[in-house]
Design a protein around this nucleic acid. Structure first.
Length: 941
RNA sequence: GCGGGUGUGGUGAAAUUGGUAGACACGCCAGACUUAGGAUCUGGUGCUUCGGCGUGGGGGUUCGAGUCCCUCCACCCGCACCA
């Protein structure tokens, strides 16, 4: 009679395994639905109750869709390359593959006990060579592709070499760095080279030179670039791995450093990544964050000629280019500011200023990123050099300052102190002129950033506001030849190399310094004697000798490895065809499964994974490998489950602990206490003494009832706060079905919420109650048909549950089921198969084990998993009696039971005639009666 | 500073198109059965000076506002010298 969840759950998990209940194949006769959880990294700590929240929701939805007749793909796997296993390897010498394997096994056990409907035959691991050979293959495709900015798509590099051989690069529109040729030093590209070369030029280059040129156009390319170097981690980091100038993992300082690294030309996709956001069903906050990360802004690149000693434009033609979104304020320029790292700083600096400038540049270089970001004080140095104003011909002094970033725009700005806050403060600080350019605005007193301000002292743009003057200014600048329209992006190409061991090796070998793709073999990780960098700072892979490499080509192998996001950028495709040895994913499979219809995960991947996988998806689409160009159509970001920490209060300098209620009378120190020693805020005194030796002789000041009350606070779950709740203990005590229902019952999926086990008993009771309902109905034989009352209850639940699931309101479904069970239980009798079978189906997404059991009890055929989702019948939903609340001036005064079919006019007449109405009127007159059929009556007096 | 979000009982929350605010649970209180229970069952439970008052504060639209509009406040998350 008891709800024996242990037996039930073990039994059904066994059955599902035996019957391959969750194995899925492409079924063209049914509509497809792809439900995906964000790829987990199998950490050694295992799961806490926050992790499964999203998995439960997606599992519920996958099961629901299966009931609805969909061909549902719902896979799980592991993003199993990563730092923690490598750190452990460094400390212990144990190969990271072993640690990883152990952690995965633990994860798998934890996931399995929760009864998820994953098709485990599709499990993938990014660290498995059978998986990463395809990550390598995709990298190879990126390496052998260029981006055609005219066609707005990636194309094979062979088409570029063909074009070069035929016409040079005259008709080629390839995405590349500005001044791509500047790092190259061939005779063809002399001082006056402007970026175009002929077919003859191309023919005359040798292979090495051609390869160097091609490298400038590849989507995956090698380049010397300024990277985020993290000395503590011994590796470079991508921009999204740096937060506040510190590494996201570990919080170590990050420096700027120039290194030759593999890069990904994600900037080529900036526009498409931006515009196709509009069609994605994601939250505004994630989409906005991506828009900001891409940071598109329209404006002009304006060139200022450098002035020579005579104050004339430098005859050598040296110019400083700035980017501005407000070319209309050109008349307000009174100085120029370069980033300290700008190339032209040395050339512009006068002898008199040299020592000061060099000191400033050096100081800026020494600062870590965090120091530079954190320092909001105004600093800068005059270089002594000038540029010539393109309109007025006036000399404009050139400064260098920290507030101009080398990495954004051109690394130089034209300062318009009247209209830009930073320029204004800089001008005030160094007492530089602030030319007034806005009518009736005193910009000596305050800056004017209002785009609606009217221009003055600006020649032919006088009297205009920004929106009208900007297009004219752009035309003017282009006509004068001193600038061009330009779209600038904040997003930078992504660094793709890591100086680490535990990552994908590159399928790249070098022969005389030329990088070549290896296509005929999977480059697996070589044996190394330690997982650390070499003595001269080379990545760990450089420790491997030629014979240590399973595959070795050319005269050297690439020794960097790929970053964490490589494998996770395309994993959703591998699930569709996980064992394919001939392709990353057969086109027929990706055509069948298509985009992910529901993607569930935390919001922490906003600018990393979610951007990179969009980029790779678009790339694979460009080359025709897949038929869609956005990976995740619809996404839900689940909120974090926070821990509820408990505290004890130690009187300072003693070993005496005072109950929270009386702590104010003492000077106390608050200490976290393990939540397992606390029940309902009461401390287990013996357990506490036994917890740690330092507390063995603890004394207590207790409340009057002889208990110790702990304090509490809601915080992030973490080991150090002793507030971590693992699902294992709860599954042991209440069962997986209870945990599943409870996590959903807790509140809206997307919201953050504190974890509190107090409420779990209510949900557990509900499952016991529903089981009791079925066993009682089965006592003496299950009836085939039910009373109308019972059917009304069930059909109401069907309507509510279906509706809630369709709008992803996972929490209210549990309430609806509780109500149905409560109502049916109070009927005493009348429950038969036609009520209890549909009810078991409704329960099945949430409590799949118990639902199987109940389905059987209710005489269901086969497994409940494939039971058709019941449909609510209107006949059972309409009530013939309606209870009308009768309100007077909006306040409810009494209720009236009326026939549901009664016309509004009759309802009004009945209300008017009711003696309670007269009582309420108290002599006043009825001005109006509003009847909302089936809802409410409002009498206006 | 900018962007996004959230404010409803002692607690988690519900109220889908403006129509009975607080469903469903936890906790608490009382009772029953047992007289060891943290077991089970039943009833009660927003506040209240019993007139009313109540969805962060103030204002507005409406017969009617948690829901729509304006404004202010608090908290959380993300970004942050982006020219």
């Amino acid at each position: 009679m008891d709800y024996d969840f242990r037996a039930i759950e073990a039994k059904w998990q066994g059955t599902w395994k035996e019957t391959d209940a969750y194995k899925v194949t492409e079924d063209p006769t049914r509509p497809k639905f792809y439900v995906l959880d964000m790829f987990p990294y199998p950490s050694g700590a295992g799961l806490h109750v926050g992790h499964p929240l999203g998995y439960i929701a997606s599992d519920v939805f996958a099961r629901y869709k299966r009931h609805k007749g969909f061909n549902v793909l719902h896979p799980m796997g592991y993003d199993s390359f990563g730092l923690p296993a490598e750190q452990y390897a460094i400390q212990t010498g144990q190969h990271p593959a072993i640690t990883t394997e152990q952690n995965i096994n633990r994860y798998r056990d934890q996931l399995e006990q929760l009864g998820f409907c994953y098709d485990w035959s599709r499990e993938v691991r990014t660290s498995d060579p059978s998986y990463y050979r395809w990550t390598q293959w995709i990298f190879g495709e990126l390496f052998e592709s260029w981006y055609d900015t005219q066609a707005q798509k990636a194309r094979p590099i062979a088409e570029l070499t063909e074009a070069f051989a035929e016409n040079g690069n005259f008709n080629v529109h390839a995405a590349c760095d500005e001044g791509w040729w500047k790092g190259l030093s061939f005779p063809h590209f002399g001082a006056h080279f402007d970026g175009t070369f002929t077919a003859t030029d191309w023919q005359s280059m040798n292979e090495a030179e051609r390869q160097e040129v091609l490298m400038c156009f590849r989507i995956a390319y090698l380049a010397d670039s300024e990277v985020n170097w993290c000395p503590a981690l011994g590796t470079v980091l991508a921009n999204d791995e740096v937060k506040d100038g510190l590494s996201e993992r570990g919080g170590h300082p990050v420096m700027k450093k120039t290194m030759r690294q593999w890069m990904m030309r994600i900037t080529a996709y900036a526009d498409r990544l931006l515009s196709s956001l509009d069609d994605l069903d994601w939250t505004d906050s994630v989409k906005e964050a991506q828009r900001h990360w891409i940071g598109r802004s329209e404006g002009a690149a304006v060139r200022f000629a450098v002035a020579n000693d005579a104050g004339q434009p430098d005859p050598a033609g040296t110019e400083v280019e700035v980017f501005t979104t407000r070319p209309d304020t050109l008349h307000g320029v009174s100085f120029m500011v370069l980033a300290p790292e700008h190339d032209l700083v040395a050339g512009l600096t006068s002898d008199a200023q040299r020592s000061e400038v060099e000191a400033y540049v050096e100081a800026a270089g020494m600062k870590s990123e965090r120091d530079r970001q954190g320092d909001k004080s105004i600093s800068g140095v005059f270089t002594g050099g000038h540029v010539v104003h393109p309109i007025t011909g006036a000399l404009v002094p050139v400064w260098i300052a920290d507030y101009v970033l080398a990495g954004y725009g051109t690394g130089a700005i034209m300062a318009v102190p009247a209209g830009d806050d930073r320029d204004w403060r800089f001008a005030k600080h160094f007492d530089l002129p602030i030319p007034p350019i806005f009518k009736d605005v005193d910009t000596q007193e305050a800056v004017c950033t209002d785009k609606g301000a009217i221009l003055c002292n600006s020649g032919e743009w006088d009297g205009m506001r920004a929106s009208d003057a900007i297009p004219l200014a752009l035309d003017w600048v282009e006509a004068q030849g001193c600038g061009t329209r330009k779209v600038n992006y904040r997003i930078r190409d992504a660094v793709f190399s890591r100086q680490r061991y535990w990552g994908e090796p590159f399928p790249i070998a070098y022969e005389n310094g030329i990088a070549t793709r290896i296509t005929d073999a999977t480059v697996t990780l070589p044996k190394v004697d330690a997982y650390l960098p070499t003595e001269d700072g080379e990545p760990p892979l450089a420790r491997a000798n030629r014979e240590d490499w399973p595959v070795f080509r050319g005269d050297a192998m690439e020794t960097n490895t790929m970053p964490g996001w490589a494998g996770s950028s395309w994993y959703f495709l591998r699930y569709m065809d996980p064992h394919n040895e001939n392709a990353f994913c057969d086109r027929s499979k990706s055509d069948h499964w298509g985009q992910v219809d529901l993607y569930v995960g935390g919001a922490e991947h906003t600018t990393g994974h979610l951007l990179y996988s969009r980029f790779w998806t678009k790339f694979l689409h460009d080359l025709g490998h897949i038929g869609f160009d956005e990976p995740f159509k619809f996404m839900i970001n689940q909120g974090m489950i926070l821990g509820r920490s408990s505290f004890v209060y130690r009187i300072q300098g003693t070993n005496t602990f005072v109950s929270a209620n009386q702590r104010k009378a003492h000077r106390t120190q608050r200490l976290h206490v393990d939540i397992n020693l606390v029940d309902n805020d009461k401390l287990d005194l013996d357990g506490f003494r036994a917890w740690r030796t330092e507390f063995a002789n603890a004394e207590f000041i207790l409340d009057d009832d002889g208990t110790y009350t702990c304090g509490h606070e809601v915080e992030k779950m973490s080991k150090s706060k002793y507030n971590v709740q693992t699902p294992d203990e709860l599954v042991e005590r209440y069962g997986a079905d209870t945990l599943r229902c409870y996590e959903m019952f807790l509140g809206p999926l997307t919201q953050h919420k504190p974890w509190d086990t107090q409420g779990i008993s209510g949900v557990h009771n509900f499952l016991r109650k529903i089981q009791r309902l079925y066993t009682q109905a089965a006592k003496g034989g299950m009836a085939t048909s039910s009373s109308d009352d019972a059917l009304r209850i069930v059909h109401k639940a069907i309507a509510k549950v279906t509706d809630d699931l369709d709008r992803h309101a996972f929490n209210t479904v549990v309430s609806a089921l509780m109500i149905a069970v409560n109502d049916l239980s109070s009927l005493d009798s009348g429950c038969g198969e036609d009520a209890l079978q549909p009810l078991a189906t409704l329960l099945s997404p949430y409590a799949p084990h118990l639902a199987e059991e109940l389905w059987q009890t209710a005489g269901g055929e086969g497994s409940v998993l494939d039971a058709a989702w019941p449909e609510a019948q209107d006949a059972y939903l309409v009530e013939d009696q309606t209870t009308y609340p009768i309100s007077f001036n909006g306040k409810v005064r009494f209720k009236l039971d009326l026939a549901a079919s009664m016309s509004p006019a009759d309802v009004e007449a009945t209300v008017r005639a009711d003696e309670r109405t007269l009582e309420q009127l108290d002599g006043k007159e009825i001005r109006k009666v509003i009847v909302v059929p089936g809802r409410i009556v409002n009498v206006v007096m």
